[in-house]
Amino acid sequence: MSLTAVAIGIAIMPLAVLAGATRGRVAQWSVEVNQVEAGDSNVAPEFKAAIYENVVIELAKAKQFSAVLRSGDRSANGVSNLLILKTTVESYRPGSETKRAVTTVTGTTKLRVRTQLCTQDGQVLLERVVDGDVRFLGENLRATHNLARNVVKAIKQVTLPEPAPSNHA
């Protein structure tokens, strides 16, 4: 019985070490989330704030980065391997929860943003247009939650480069 357990342990160990190494490599980057820019859209300020907050929350949940910093955070000054996430709203269509409840097919809240993940020297690692909407159930602000999840999903798909060796703290 104990021999079997030891054998399983030995078999699993390389996988765990590999996973740890991968996580460690990704976790060497930190990210600073910039405030959301309205662009040419007439996005409501509460939506801008909600997108920003939800992206910060979802990035922290994803554990892709060693630190998730807010825009203007002074502790970002000392961080060498820092990526910057910029979000610009491209289009915003305000919906109505009541219309959704009554008609089901109308009243959709739609958001579309352009998200950019850049290094400190301006190199763009990711540029993608991401959508977020509420079609059936939920309040209007839920669109920002869905959008933030899609932004983080897009970031997860990017293979981040190795940080510069001189930048290792």
Binding site: Q35, P45, E46, K48, A49, A50, Y52, E53, L69, R70, S71, G72, D73, R74, S75, E97, T98, A101, V102, T103, T104, L141
Partner: peptide, 30 residues
């Protein structure tokens, strides 16, 4: 359910406050 949905709604005020924390980081509170 649609008829109920037509009447079961209420208007609320939303106040969005943007502020800096002690570290200088921006927060948006609704």
């Amino acid at each position: 359910g649609r008829v109920i949905g037509l009447f079961a709604h209420k208007r609320y005020d939303f106040v969005t406050v943007e502020y800096f924390d002690s570290n200088g980081g921006v927060h948006g509170t609704i």
